[in-house]
Lab assay of single mutants.
Amino acid sequence: EVTIKANLIFANGSTQTAEFKGTFEKATSEAYAYADTLKKDNGEYTVDVADKGYTLNIKFAG
């Protein structure tokens, strides 16, 4: 089991951190699915992958 950390960075400057656990593939998939649910209210997003994929910096356009 691994932990994927998602740093969520919103257009208004606020930030939030979420963690997803499971296999690497499952946790990564859940992180992207979570970002997709936030897209409606926060706009499109870009992802900067860090720490060999264990950290995702997800920035929303607003």
Rank of each mutant, 00 (worst) to 15 (best):
T23M: 09
V49S: 10
D41V: 15
N57T: 13
A50K: 12
E30K: 07
Q16S: 10
A50P: 04
K40P: 11
D41L: 14
S29E: 12
A50I: 11
N42H: 15
S14H: 13
F60E: 00
T15F: 11
V47F: 05
S29P: 02
T23G: 06
N7L: 15
E1K: 04
T23H: 09
T37W: 11
I4Q: 00
T46S: 12
V49F: 12
Q16H: 15
K5N: 11
K39Q: 08
Y54K: 07
V2M: 08
E1N: 06
Y32F: 14
L56C: 01
T28V: 10
V49K: 08
K26F: 14
G13Q: 10
T37S: 08
A50G: 10
K52D: 09
T17C: 05
A11F: 12
K52W: 08
N57Y: 13
Q16A: 14
G22T: 02
A11Q: 15
G43K: 02
T3W: 08
V47S: 06
E30D: 14
A61W: 08
L56A: 01
S29N: 13
Q16Y: 11
Y34W: 09
T17L: 12
E44S: 15
G62C: 07
S29V: 10
E1D: 09
T37R: 12
V2D: 05
Y32G: 02
K5M: 15
Y32K: 07
F60K: 00
Y34K: 04
T17N: 12
G22C: 02
D51C: 05
K52R: 10
T15Q: 13
E30S: 10
G22M: 02
A11H: 15
A6F: 03
T3E: 06
E19F: 14
I4M: 03
G53W: 03
T46W: 06
Y54T: 06
Y34P: 00
K39L: 06
A31C: 05
T3V: 11
S29C: 05
T55F: 06
F24Y: 12
Y32A: 03
T55W: 05
V2W: 06
A18T: 09
N7W: 12
L38D: 01
D36W: 04
G53Q: 04
V49E: 08
I58K: 00
D48F: 14
D51T: 03
T37N: 12
D36Q: 09
A31S: 03
A31H: 02
G13I: 04
I9N: 09
I4W: 02
K52C: 06
I4E: 00
T28R: 10
D36N: 13
D36M: 07
K5D: 03
A6C: 04
F24E: 04
D36I: 05
A27W: 01
K21T: 14
T17G: 10
A61G: 08
S14D: 08
A27F: 00
N42K: 10
L56Q: 01
F24I: 09
T46P: 00
Y34T: 04
T37E: 08
T46R: 09
K52T: 10
D51P: 02
Y32V: 07
T28S: 10
K5T: 12
G62D: 08
V49C: 04
F20Q: 01
A27T: 03
G53E: 03
T55V: 14
N42T: 04
D36S: 07
S14G: 10
E1F: 05
T15D: 08
K40V: 07
T55P: 01
E1W: 06
K26G: 15
Y34A: 04
I4V: 11
A18L: 14
G13A: 05
D48G: 14
F20R: 01
K5W: 14
K52M: 12
D51V: 02
A18Q: 14
K52H: 12
T15N: 11
E25A: 08
V2A: 08
T17M: 12
A18P: 03
G13C: 06
L38V: 04
N12I: 09
L38S: 02
V47L: 05
S14A: 13
D41Q: 14
A50T: 07
E19S: 13
V49W: 10
G43I: 02
A31N: 01
T46K: 14
T37F: 08
T3L: 11
A33C: 04
T46Q: 06
G62N: 12
A18M: 15
K39D: 02
A35Q: 00
K52A: 14
G22W: 02
F60L: 01
K59Y: 09
G22H: 02
I58D: 00
